[in-house]
Structure formats: structure tokens, C-alpha cells
Design a protein around this nucleic acid. Sequence first.
DNA 1: AAGTGGTCTAGACCACTAG
DNA 2: TAGTGGTCTAGACCACTTC
Lengths: 256, 256
Amino acid sequence: MSCMYPRAMRSRPLAADRPLAQQVRMRLAEGMAAGEWKPGEALPSESELASAFGVAIGTIRKAVDGLVAQQAVVRRQGKGTFVAAHDPRRLMFHFFHVVGRDGTKAYPEVTTLDFRRDRAGPADAAALGIAPLDRVFRIRNVLTLGDRRAILDDIALPAALFPGLTEKIFLARENTIYHLYQSRYGINVLRTDERLRATQASREEARQLGIAEGAALLEIRRVAFTFRDRAVELRLSRVDSEHFEYHNTLGKGEPL
Amino acid sequence: MSCMYPRAMRSRPLAADRPLAQQVRMRLAEGMAAGEWKPGEALPSESELASAFGVAIGTIRKAVDGLVAQQAVVRRQGKGTFVAAHDPRRLMFHFFHVVGRDGTKAYPEVTTLDFRRDRAGPADAAALGIAPLDRVFRIRNVLTLGDRRAILDDIALPAALFPGLTEKIFLARENTIYHLYQSRYGINVLRTDERLRATQASREEARQLGIAEGAALLEIRRVAFTFRDRAVELRLSRVDSEHFEYHNTLGKGEPL
DNA sequence: AAGTGGTCTAGACCACTAG
DNA sequence: TAGTGGTCTAGACCACTTC
């Protein structure tokens, strides 16, 4: 006698034809994007999710595996599964690849030089996936690593994603800018796209970084994305290449 | 009545206490590192592996999942699981991140300027994990992208990993240098570590790249690793940053 | 003791590939 | 048609956390 093969959710209308686990993963991702579970909060337990979605617990586990691989959630044995929060290690992985040439790996200290409201130019709009003339916030920061000015950052944020943001709120943030994105706006950066090139310091750049005009600068143009590949930040970084470098490891996974 | 819980391999001596799936993955990785299955060849089928290792097929699948994530193997439905080969897409992912500033994404054409036997200096030795004065091969290449010289490469290879390599063999290679590593020496690059900084072209660099002395150069110092995190190549690249840039995406995984 | 994630098993059916 | 990987189920036991 053959076994029943109960296909849960078989009556779901929009269920595409993707594997169940992927469908579950997308539904969970949407929930996080919509703020149903905020960064740091716990998702329902796997058995709860299994009965809620009407699938086997193994399918839930596979779905969550995908979210873990994306670093969208973190599992803690005996406690639960939590929406990823920006602990320092996560920051290091996703955002901060600049290290001292001598091997130093300090966390940067940020000083904000300027904060203003503006409208997007054509290049900003293309990078951020918004319309030209849409509102943006522009921020200029200097990042210090170990008592030395290392990086000059120009950041552009689509104002639509950061309702009510003001210079006061921005400057009053407790931790990093990513904590702000996350805690106040529930925005979690999942992917970044970076383009690097070499330039030479302009007079103004040299002054603000405390280096010589014409010194070698490493320029990084980065776009950060959240759920649904929505761009949340455009950042132009200029790194003092005399004392710092960009470090990148490809092909991770556990050893062997 | 409770179910039996047959723990296969329970008598294995060195079986550490790692999960079964990880043990299986490591055994498979060792087999590939030892050349038991060479790049492009098929592994035994999952059911064969399951009975060979004495574990459930689901455990084999989990082990292979890990190898797939590492890009050490590729699955093909209906055909089998194959040791990764250096198709162009894989190359693009692991090795080649330089693109035209206008968005061009061509494959590079390589011209070898020099090939010689030498001994490792202290810096080479440290990067490659070998002893100073160990034998190395040194190669200088110029890479051309779309009719323009783009990159000047200085490569150092530990001679111990490339027995019998000669300039003649090196120059007679059909495809890329990675095809050579793979087809002749069974070496598969799984991980790379890259450090980038900005410099200015020396007189010789300028001459060999056909650019102006003092022009902005993007310098990439890369170490490539194979199984067991063994370093197989040290490469110093200098990129014409006027016309090209380095492109990097972090946090992949399927969308959403 | 109860609840959570972590690992493993056993076996079903599906989809693709080849002879 | 036979064999391969791809998906899903159902349920066992293990390890960690909290009360």
C-alpha cells in the first residue's frame, strides 16, 4: 500500500511553482521587510511555523537555512530564531572592509561634518532606483581609525525610506548609522555592491583627511540593498591608501 | 515502542564529534584534494555514497550541500554530481573582478612577459605558507580587455605544488592559467584573500600598461587557496584605474 | 520539566537525462 | 525504462536554555 503524499498549501492561489521551502522563505522575508518581526526579535518557533504554514518542520528548517545563509536571521539553540541585528561582527562582514596596512582591525569612529536635505541627481537616482529630483538626505562623515583620519564618506539616503529623519535625530544616534537604519526604520542591509578605483586626493579631500594633496586615495562607490533588492544607501568613500587598505575574502563557508 | 536509532560509523576511530554530514563532507573534500575524483569528473551517486558511508541519503545530501555552497562541486539533475570545473562563470566569480568603468564585462586576454624559477623571499613565504628560499615560479603577465591593456600581474607559485612545470608548458596552455592549475595539477581554487590599495604608476608600470607615469593604479594583492586552506598562488595586480575598476558584490544568495 | 533549535533516519514522489 | 538529483514528509533522539 502506498503512502499518502499530502501536499500542504496545495490550494494556495499565487503559490507559483517554486519549491515549498522557497515560498516559505519568501513569506518570512516579507514579514521581516514589513516589520512584522523587527531586528533582534524572535520568529515563531519552527514547530509553530510548520503548523502555521501547514508544512513539515524539515521544510521550515530548509527555508530558515536560506535566511541564515543570507544573514537575515540568526539561530540560537535552545532559545529561538532571531531577526539579524547589527552586532559588530555582522558590521565587519557587510560594511566595513577597511583595515590598517599593518594589520590593524579597529572599529571606526565617526564624525559628521555635514547633514542636509537635497534632491537626487541623475546618477544618484539611477543608483538608488528612485526618480531624479526625489528627496534625499546627504551626509558627509569622516571616519577615524586608531587616532588617524582614514576615510571621507559622502552618503545619500532616499528620504522616502527615512521618514522624519532630521539632523538632530541623526546626530543623536547611539551607535553606528546602521543601528539607526535598523532600530528606527527596521531597515536591514542584506547585500552591497561595491566598485573600487584609485584616485588622487583633491585639495579639499586632502584637507579633510589630513594628508597631502595628490596623495593616493582608494575610492569606493557602494550601494546597499535591503529586502527585495531595494537600495537604501549610496556611499562614496575615499580611503587614505597610504595607511589603510581594503580587505576582502571570497568563497567562505566552513573550512575544508 | 520506540524506534531504533542506528548511528552508522559509530565505530570509526578518528570520527571526532562533529556531525556526520560534516565528517562526510570532509572525507569527500579529501578525496577531491587527493585527486581521487578530478575536476569535471562525477562523484558516486548519492545512494552509492549513502551505502558506502553507511548513512542516510539525507545526510549525504546535506554534506554535498556544503560542497555546493563552497563551489567545490556542481549538481546536475538526472546526471550526477561533478567536481567543479573552471567554466567562465566560475572564473568570473572567484577570480576576476575587474570591469570597464563604462560597464564592460569582457574576459581578459593574457600575454606572458616573463617566466622564471626563483626562490621565495620572506614576504612571499609568509603569504604562501612556505619556507623562505623555497622554490617558486614567477610569472609576469599583461591582461588586455577590449583592445586596451588593463592589468599588470606578478604571480608567484610554490614550485612544490606544480611539479614539472616549465615555461614551455605554461605558454602552451590552452585556456586560462586556472585551467592549467586544474587540468594538470588537479588544483581547484576555493577561496581568495584580497587586499586593495591605490598607488601611482612607476615608470616601468606605465610603460608596460601604456599609460602615463604617475597615473592612478589600483593595486590588488591576492592569495588563492585550495582545499585545506593551502595557498597556491600569490598575485600582485596593478589595474589601470583610469579606465577600469574593481567590482564586488557581498551577501549573495537567491533574491528576497 | 518543558521548549527550542540541531542532527539523523526512512521512505515517498517529482523532474530531468540517457539508452 | 532505469538512474540521478530535487523536494517533502514524519518522527526519532540530542543539546542547549530557562524555569
